[in-house]
Amino acid sequence: MAPTTNASTDLAVAQAAASELARLLPSVVPLVPVPFDAAQAPAPDAVAVRASFVGGVSADLVVVADAAVAQVLASAGAVSLADAMRPALEAAAATLGPGVLDAAVAGSLDGDLAEPGVAAIALAPAPGEAPQAWFGLRTRTHTPVPQQRDGVRPGQGAGGDRAALRLLHDVELTLTAEIGRTRLPVRQVLELVPGTVLELDRAAGSPADVMVNGRLVARGEVVVVDEDYGIRITEIVANEA
């Protein structure tokens, strides 16, 4: 992976993403994207929330908005800064096209907005006013995999791929089974009590999704094995990539 070099294209992409992020940012005062001014940039030790997006256009996203959302978070003690920023980051990532947004993580900014290849956008109540939040986006290009004339990748044949894959045989992957999803506003999450029934986005009897490190790999039916739940695989999901 390497940063893209078309700065004007990256800035246009970042502006579109910042507009969507600002729309769902949990700030008491609505914010709009404005040009980034290094003189008004956040301090290097400011709290930032980062997430990586993998898709046709892959990118790293970072947002500094702890002050802008502080009042909202103060009234929702059970919600972390990273969780509060997740819907806004998802909206920003959606402008990049189909893909998967990794978990959002809060940490020190460490000067990310000043790094080469980062398209930075400020967020302010109105143009000309002092920024209250900042958004940065760094797109990544995929390095093409060399192909031989017959379509066989280097290293294939003579057990090349198998030998390489064997090095990963002992690496543990997290496998989860998902029977459905739903989305709830923070208000309803805070009102959850024992006995609450949540309606999922899947009909009863539908196959469960089998995920490996968050990636869909198969579907199956829920079974019981020695008083424990299990999954009987009924379908392997092809990797379209």
Rank of each mutant, 00 (worst) to 15 (best):
T4M: 12
S8A: 15
A12P: 06
A12T: 13
V13P: 07
A17I: 03
A18L: 02
S19H: 11
E20T: 10
P26V: 01
S27A: 15
P33D: 00
F36I: 02
A38L: 12
A39L: 11
P42R: 00
A43I: 06
V47G: 11
V47C: 07
V47F: 03
R50T: 12
F53A: 01
V57I: 14
D66I: 02
V69F: 00
V69L: 02
Q71K: 14
V72T: 15
V72C: 10
A74I: 05
L81I: 01
L81A: 03
M85H: 03
P87F: 01
P87M: 00
L89Q: 05
L96Y: 07
L96R: 00
G97I: 06
S108L: 11
D110L: 12
G111P: 05
G117M: 03
V118S: 01
A119Y: 00
G128Y: 08
E129R: 15
Q132A: 12
A133P: 01
W134F: 12
G136N: 01
T139G: 11
T141G: 14
T141C: 10
H142K: 11
H142M: 12
T143I: 12
V145Q: 14
Q147R: 15
Q148H: 14
R149P: 12
G155D: 10
G159I: 02
G160S: 08
R162C: 07
R162N: 13
A163D: 13
A163Q: 13
L165Y: 06
R166M: 13
V171N: 05
L173R: 05
T176I: 12
T176M: 13
T176L: 11
T176F: 08
A177L: 05
E178L: 12
E178W: 01
R181V: 06
V186I: 09
V186Q: 07
V186T: 09
R187M: 10
E191Y: 08
L192N: 05
V197G: 05
P207H: 02
M211D: 07
V212C: 15
G214Q: 09
R215Q: 14
G220D: 00
E221F: 13
E221P: 01
V223C: 09
V225G: 01
D228T: 15
D228N: 15
Y229P: 03
Y229R: 08
G230L: 08
A238K: 08
N239R: 13
E240M: 08
A241I: 10
